[in-house]
Design a protein around this nucleic acid. Structure first.
Lengths: 145, 145
DNA sequence: TCCATTAGTTATCATTTGATAACAAAATAG
DNA sequence: CTATTTTGTTATCAAATGATAACTAATGGA
């Protein structure tokens, strides 16, 4: 396998992934939530509790801007901040009940579209997909180093 | 393979893909090009010639906004527009020499980082990755229907 | 104790992006 | 030939995002 050729395949693949994720998530319309705010909620949902610094690092945004968006989300009661009792500079961010609810609805919506996407896949296909995701995760996207 | 479980794996996977693509492309800094403009150039690079309508559809932006960004790119001599001789409403967009040059540089930079990413992969690993990309493309991201 | 570092906030400004209306020109269907 | 549709442009406005300075508070090390 030529590495150059593999690179081209990789580029086309990532473009397709972006395209499909966009299609899967585009009709998730949470009332007056901006894309960045949705990304933050999504990250909190799968990683909570998280600190503002972690959000800032993982979503590649500055701490001041992260802080601003978190404040807006807090004002709308989607998240709550809890101070660390050890290090009182640190704040742990969690979803509130409301926040959990809207994110579960959002994920349910995405999941439904995902199932449509793979509706024609056989049991064998599903196994293949699972295996392929594992391989790529392990060898490219989440290498153990 | 439980479909629900597969969905969770899929979500984690796409997040990792986004993360890695961001890391691969973040240090591609073309002088005064906005992210959207870069996306457009990238799309033109791999699909040229393309029409504004195609760009609009594929990148999910409105035609007026597409037109605006294309004008800016044309002013900077990165692209050129050629009228279709058959249907004179249509305009084919291509990269200029300058445009080709900066995109080749950008791709070279990304390719280098990609090679770093897979530097520890054996020949067998590369074959596995290639195969996994094919499977996912065929069965999830670019189904022939 | 004093200093440097870390975590986070607030305020402000510029830029980018999105949305929409109004338009023109070409093509096509009736 | 006329009406409608397609393709694209220009202009304008609002909103989202990015960047930065100035700040507070807590921690940790010398």
């Amino acid at each position: 396998m030529d590495k150059k050729q593999l690179f081209h395949q990789f580029v086309a693949f990532t473009a397709a992934v972006h395209q499909v994720t966009h299609e899967l998530t585009q009709n998730v319309k949470i009332d007056n939530i901006t894309p960045v705010q949705y990304k933050i909620l999504e990250y909190i949902k799968v990683s909570q509790p998280v600190t503002p610094t972690e959000i800032s690092d993982c979503l590649h945004m500055s701490l001041p801007n992260t802080s601003r968006e978190l404040r807006k989300l807090q004002e709308r009661k989607f998240i709550e901040k809890i101070s660390d009792t050890e290090d009182r500079r640190k704040h742990y961010i969690c979803l509130t009940e409301d926040g959990e609810k809207i994110m579960e609805e959002a994920f349910a919506c995405i999941e439904e579209r995902f199932h449509q996407l793979i509706q024609h896949a056989s049991t064998n296909d599903l196994e293949d997909i699972h295996h392929a995701l594992n391989i790529l995760d392990e060898k490219v996207f989440n290498p153990k180093l």
